[in-house]
Design a protein around this nucleic acid. Structure first.
Length: 724
DNA sequence: GCATGCAGCACTGCA
DNA sequence: TGCTGCATGC
């Protein structure tokens, strides 16, 4: 078999990795160093040289995007069909195992996945049932506690709360939450992984089967594995099979999700025969961008050490723009987008990256105003929209009547006369008798505890769900969805609603039918006989609906820095580089978390191929109120000679904030010799920047954001400001 | 039981 | 800013 096409265009280290003799390997792969290429070529090499059959390959990644891309690339490389080869994310892998071995895993056959929204609601219900005050036991905190324990592999029974009353109570809540999930046949994201691990741990035969099957285990983004994932991989690997793991400690950005960067170091000691290779040649970015990123990341301690280099051109300096507010920042960015576009750059080659989703709005508004098409990744995704989740709740109940999360969602939607009082009875009955809500409601009706009216209403609901499930037998997937929308009167419900969003909701429901029609069970790689509806529900929970509509239209790309990982763009704007926003306020005081922010910055910078922009704003409207922040330390950590400060070229023409406070002004307008955005000096407050003004003559006041003291309004006549 | 309006609150990132 | 819970009136 000719394998030259797999090796010819690789550099020396890449080739060494791809064609290495069997054995455990750790590849430290810098950003843009051809990591995915090495991984896919390695798989193709193993198969084409006859060392592996597709059946014996297990390749794991973290995101669906990466998994799809990997499979696609492998398919192009090899002649054999890739069927039977497992290429997927940790979560869908775990899900698949649990589906196949639901009995051994102690789950009902129709178990459903809880996304974090569902999990939050479930936690709240548990707190309610335990009669705990939400202000003392914030559901978010409880949720975080549960997830972090699961990520560590701890069940309530493993935890000791005897020394700490708070801890003790948290453990009891965790316990109660687990019982609620078990009752409802519900599995959250962390549970998928933990259960899959326990499934193998407690089942030698089963484990042996998979150990025997997967001779070649390949892991992407290894730095993002958490304790359970690592333990799971450890279980699977024996002396007979080999691990090929690829990672970059500098790109570990999921510590908050339990990822353990030290798993990389551990790997080399746990697998003593392991060979380590470093991919340091970068094929993506200009020399300037790489040096800037390298210098930045050098501020972190305890790195494995790595220096990216390129044989390509030096390129342009990083452009830094310090806007005087977020609107000005957005205006600058959009203007630059326009310039690139005019120069012939495709819109999809431009990415606007930000730390948190809330930042997208101002950018979107500016793009809309300039009529530049854009696409936002992440944020509220398709399958997370309320109306879509409601429809999905009916579908889930059809498969699993005990799904309490779904029951709560739609038992009275559209309203059918089941009010808070009746539901309270149902919930009480459920927790007293350890029943699901569905079963508890049945019991209440059988025992004639509910009033006739409420009982009838609930009966209507029962009949509806049962008949939907019956009808589903003979319908195609998308017809099932249509049937639900019609029979449960969801479509009518939203058609009647007269809010502005109603139209949108109706369209989303129509889109859901389309999504069901296009959904291809084969795409999920389930070779067992999972029914299409179950597969669709799992797909919705695990894939939240990225890649809906418009994917191919030429659009400017907007996304968080986290979701940009693994992607590359010729032109990248990193927005909102301000202390408190990036690095985020919640991470600033802890060295470990600050370093993770810095790695996130590193990830962002290394997305850029040709031109990198880093923008910031003196003031910003966030969550409804104005904040004033210093420019991010990350910009200062880049060598000055690699950065070009863009000076403000023009003032904003108008502002969209409270227009009653801020009069419109034109660019030539000068107040008392000062302009907006101008730096000034005050005798006692020090230096600052003019943000705003109001009034005229002797009443004129200016708002100045002082570097040390923050923002103040000053009467111009007394302030004695010196312009700088 | 249900629709509506308002006050209070929270809010990083993701499968 | 946007969601949630609660009070209100029907």
């Amino acid at each position: 078999m000719d394998i030259s096409h797999l090796l010819d265009d690789l550099n020396e280290v890449q080739r060494e990795a791809v064609a290495a003799a069997p054995g455990n390997m750790l590849i430290i792969a810098g950003a843009g160093s051809g990591k995915t290429r090495v991984l896919t070529r390695r798989i193709a090499y193993l198969i084409e040289t006859g060392q592996a059959s597709p059946l014996s390959v297990l390749a794991v990644t973290f995101t669906n995007k990466a998994a799809h891309e990997m499979r696609g690339r492998i398919e192009k490389l090899i002649s054999a069909p890739t069927r039977g080869m497992w290429v997927s994310t940790f979560h869908s892998l775990a899900h698949r195992l649990l589906r196949t071995h639901w009995r051994e895993a102690g789950l009902p056959q129709g178990f459903q996945i809880l996304d974090s929204q569902d999990q939050y609601r479930t936690v709240r219900n548990v707190l309610k049932a335990m009669d705990l005050d939400e202000t003392r036991w914030p559901p978010r905190q409880v949720q975080w506690f549960i997830n972090s324990k699961k990520d560590e592999g701890h069940r309530p029974k493993h935890l000791d709360g005897s020394s700490d009353a708070y801890q003790e109570r948290m453990i009891r809540i965790y316990q109660a939450y687990e019982e609620a999930c078990q009752r409802g046949g519900l599995v959250d994201f962390a549970e998928l992984l933990l259960r899959a691990y326990e499934l193998w741990l407690g089942n030698e035969q089963l484990l042996a089967h998979y150990q025997h099957r997967f001779h070649h285990i390949l892991v992407d983004e290894f730095q993002d594995t958490n304790a359970v994932q690592y333990a799971w991989l450890r279980l699977l690997s024996t002396s007979d099979n080999t691990m090929f793991v690829v990672g970059d400690d500098d790109q570990s950005i999921y510590g908050w999700r339990g990822a353990r960067i030290e798993n990389i170091q551990r790997f080399t000691s746990d697998y003593s025969s392991c060979k380590t290779l470093r991919l340091e040649q970068n094929y993506r970015s200009t020399g300037t961008i790489l040096t800037a990123a390298n210098t930045l990341i050098a501020n972190n301690d305890g790195r494995l050490g790595k220096n990216l280099w390129t044989s390509g051109e030096e390129g342009e300096p990083v452009l830094a723009y310090n806007a005087f507010n977020d609107l000005d920042e957005a205006r600058y960015i959009v203007e630059e987008c326009r310039r690139w576009q005019d120069k012939g750059c495709r819109r999809q080659d431009i990415a606007l990256l930000y730390r948190s989703n809330a930042q997208s709005r101002v950018l979107e508004e500016a793009l809309i105003a300039e009529r530049i098409p854009y696409r936002v990744y992440g944020g509220l995704r398709f399958f997370e929209r309320a109306e879509v989740k409601n429809a999905m709740a009916y579908l889930r109940l059809m498969i699993n009547r005990d799904d309490d999360a779904s029951f709560e969602r739609v038992v009275n939607l559209p309203t059918r006369g089941i009010g808070a009082r009746s539901l309270l009875l149902v919930r009480d009955c459920a927790s007293e008798n350890n029943l699901s809500l569905w079963a508890a409601a049945h019991k209440l009706i059988d025992n004639k505890i509910l009033k006739a009216r409420a009982a009838n209403a609930i009966m209507t609901f029962f009949t509806l769900v049962d008949s939907l499930a019956d009808a589903a037998m003979s319908l195609e997937l998308h017809e099932q969805v249509e049937h639900v929308l019609a029979q449960a009167a969801l479509m009518d419900h939203y058609r009647r609603e007269k809010s502005e969003k109603a139209q949108m909701r109706v369209e989303n429901l129509e889109e859901l039918v389309t999504a069901a029609r296009q959904f291809n069970v084969a795409a999920l790689e389930y070779d067992d006989d999972m029914d299409p509806l179950s597969a669709f529900l799992a797909h919705a929970a695990l894939e939240a609906g990225e890649g809906q509509a418009d994917e191919w239209e030429d659009c400017v790309q907007l996304m968080t820095l986290h979701s940009a990982k693994g992607l590359e763009f010729p032109v990248v704007f990193m927005c909102g580089l301000e202390e408190g926003l990036f690095p985020h306020q919640l991470s600033i005081d802890e060295p470990g978390r600050l370093e993770e922010e810095r790695r996130l910055c590193y990830v962002g910078m290394t997305r850029a191929m040709r031109q990198l922009y880093m923008t910031s704003a003196e003031s910003r409207r966030l969550h409804g109120n104005e904040t004033y922040n210093q420019r991010s330390r990350f910009i200062d950590e880049i060598p000055e000679d690699l950065v070009n400060e863009v000076r403000m070229t023009r003032q904003v023409k108008q502002t969209a904030y409270a227009s009653d406070l801020i009069p419109a002004f034109d660019s030539d307008h000068v107040i008392g010799g000062l302009k907006l955005g101008q730096r000034v000096m005050h005798n006692s407050f020090g230096e600052g920047i003019v943000l705003n003004y109001e009034g005229q003559g002797s009443h004129a006041r200016v708002q100045v954001n002082f570097d040390q003291l923050g923002s103040k309004w000053l009467v111009l006549a007394y302030a004695n400001l010196q312009s700088l």
